Amino acid sequence: MHTADMSDLLGKATLRAKGQITLSARIREALHAREGDDVEFREEDGVVYVRAVRTIAADQAWFWSPEWQAGEVEASQEIARGETEKFDSTDEFLKSLGQ
């Protein structure tokens, strides 16, 4: 049996009659869980692991693709370095694109 250091204890919850538990704010924060997220349980060698699973709507999945996220990182880095341009009008912006 695994004996955890009690200083690692995030809290505890009481199992209710219908199999429901309420997670404390501290536990939800540790799981990065928000209302509406699923919570997934996995057992391995007698230890139960828990994690929050956030479902992404099909019409939003493109944003979370590795390619799009790489572009988001690149854009954030360019903004942080001050590599931006400001345009006073849509026409000016389109002209800069060669339109």
Rank of each mutant, 00 (worst) to 15 (best):
M1A: 11
M1W: 06
T3H: 13
A4W: 02
D5F: 11
M6S: 15
D8E: 14
L9E: 14
G11W: 00
G11E: 06
K12E: 07
K12I: 03
T14W: 04
T14H: 08
T14M: 07
T14N: 08
A17K: 14
G19K: 04
I21T: 09
T22G: 14
T22N: 06
T22I: 15
L23V: 03
S24N: 02
I27E: 10
E29F: 05
E29P: 01
A30I: 05
A30R: 00
A30T: 03
L31H: 06
H32Y: 03
A33C: 01
A33P: 08
R34Q: 11
R34K: 11
R34I: 04
E35I: 12
G36D: 14
G36Y: 10
G36I: 00
G36S: 04
D37A: 07
D37T: 03
D38C: 03
D38F: 03
D38A: 11
V39I: 15
V39S: 11
E40W: 10
E40D: 10
F41S: 12
E43A: 05
E44Y: 09
G46N: 09
V47G: 10
V48M: 12
V48W: 11
Y49H: 12
V50H: 02
V50W: 02
V50P: 04
V50Q: 05
R51Q: 07
R51P: 00
I56R: 14
A57Q: 06
A57E: 10
A57T: 02
A58S: 14
A58V: 14
A58G: 14
W62S: 12
W64F: 14
Q69A: 01
Q69S: 06
Q69K: 09
A70D: 08
G71M: 08
E72D: 10
E72P: 00
V73Q: 15
V73M: 06
V73K: 13
E74S: 08
E74L: 03
A75N: 08
S76R: 15
E78R: 15
I79Q: 01
R81C: 06
R81A: 15
G82E: 03
G82M: 07
E83I: 12
E85G: 08
E85F: 09
F87S: 00
S89N: 06
T90V: 15
T90N: 00
D91S: 15
E92P: 07
F93W: 04
F93P: 05
L94E: 04
K95Y: 08
K95M: 04
S96Y: 00
L97Y: 13
G98S: 03
Q99M: 06
Q99C: 12
